[in-house]
C-alpha cells in the first residue's frame, strides 16, 4: 500500500503532454501509470539517450533495452541532458538516499567525502535534472535517517539554503515542487522554501510523519488526507504495470505498535 500510494500520488503530479525526465523504480511506475490514465501524451525521456520511450513492461534501469526498443529517438546522453539545459523539460523525477528540509539530496557518500563510511553511486544525471528541469518531484521512503537535519554531502540541489539562494547560485530550473513518501505528500513553503506537509496518506498521522523526519517540518493548521488510489489505479498497477510485484511488493501486515 505504501508504495502503491506513492506511485499514484507521483503519477498525479504529471500533466498530459509534458516532457518528463524519468529515473528507475517507482518514478518509472508512476510515469507509466500517468500515461495509462490522465497523461497519454507524456513524453518519457531517459538520460541514457532514449527519447519518447514506449516500453513493453518494467525496465530494471534507464539503460534497459526495453526502453530503447521502439523509442522515438535513440541518441546520446549529452543530447538527452542538453534538452534540460535548453529548458525543454517540464518535470524530473528523482529518488534520494538523503533529503534535507530544502529538498537538497545526497546520493554520493555517507560520512566524510574523502573516506566515506558508505560510498554511494554518485549524482549521475540527478544534479543535472534538479538544476535544470522546470520542476522536480522527489520520491523517497519516509525514514528518519533519510530525512536528516544535515546531509553528509549535497549532491543535487533543492533550494540550497532556502529563500532565494537557489536563484542566486545561478540555477535556472524551478527546483523541487513535491516530495512524495510512503507516509505523506510534502511541498515547500513559497518564501522560506522549507519543506512543509501537504497531506498525509490514509491511516497516517501528522505525528507519524514528524517522528520520521529529522528536521523541523512546517505543518499548516489543516492537513488533508491524500486522495487514496482508485480501484482502477490499483488494478493498473497490480495487473498491468507491475504484475510480478518487482517494485510494488505485496502489502505486508502492519507491525504491532509498541505501547
Amino acid at each position: 500500500m505504501g508504495q502503491e500510494i506513492m506511485a499514484v500520488a507521483a503519477a498525479r503530479e504529471l500533466r498530459d503532454n509534458e516532457m518528463a525526465f524519468i529515473g528507475t523504480g517507482l518514478p518509472m511506475i508512476a510515469a507509466y501509470l500517468a500515461t495509462f490514465t490522465h497523461a497519454p501524451g507524456l513524453t518519457l525521456i531517459f538520460e541514457s539517450g532514449i527519447i519518447g520511450a514506449q516500453p513493453r513492461g518494467l525496465a530494471i534501469g534507464v539503460g534497459d533495452f526495453k526502453l530503447l526498443s521502439h523509442c522515438q529517438k535513440a541518441t546520446s546522453l549529452y543530447y538527452a541532458l542538453s534538452l534540460l539545459q535548453a529548458g525543454r523539460v517540464d518535470v524530473g523525477f528523482l529518488g534520494a538516499a538523503e533529503v534535507d528540509q530544502y529538498g537538497n539530496i545526497n546520493s554520493t557518500a555517507i560520512g566524510d567525502y574523502r573516506r566515506p563510511t558508505v560510498r554511494l553511486p554518485g549524482s549521475g544525471g540527478a544534479n543535472d535534472i534538479a538544476s535544470l528541469a522546470k520542476r522536480v518531484i522527489i520520491i523517497v521512503g519516509h525514514q528518519r535517517r533519510k530525512f536528516p537535519a544535515r546531509l553528509h554531502y549535497l549532491t543535487t540541489p533543492g533550494f540550497l539554503d532556502g529563500g532565494d539562494s537557489r536563484r542566486r547560485a545561478g540555477l535556472v530550473g524551478g527546483g523541487p515542487s513535491r516530495v512524495i513518501t510512503d507516509l505523506a505528500v510534502l511541498g515547500f513553503e513559497p518564501v522560506s522554501k522549507r519543506m512543509q506537509l501537504e497531506s498525509v496518506h490514509p491511516g497516517v498521522t501528522v505525528e507519524d510523519v514528524k517522528a520520521e523526519t529529522g528536521f523541523e517540518l512546517l505543518v499548516p493548521s489543516t492537513i488533508p488526507e491524500t486522495v487514496p488510489p482508485t480501484l482502477g489505479e490499483i488494478r493498473l498497477l497490480r495487473e498491468r504495470i507491475d504484475p510480478e510485484g518487482e517494485y510494488l511488493a505485496p502489502p505486508q501486515p502492519a507491525a504491532p505498535k509498541a505501547v
Binding site: R115, G124, G125, A126
Partner: peptide, 21 residues
C-alpha cells in the same frame, strides 16, 4: 569500487553526468 573508496584505496572526485561529459 565502493569498498575501495571506503578503504581509501581509490581517490574519487564527483561530477554530474552533464558536467563530466
Amino acid at each position: 569500487f565502493s569498498r575501495a573508496v571506503e578503504a581509501g584505496e581509490v581517490e574519487a572526485d564527483d561530477y554530474s553526468h552533464f558536467a563530466i561529459t
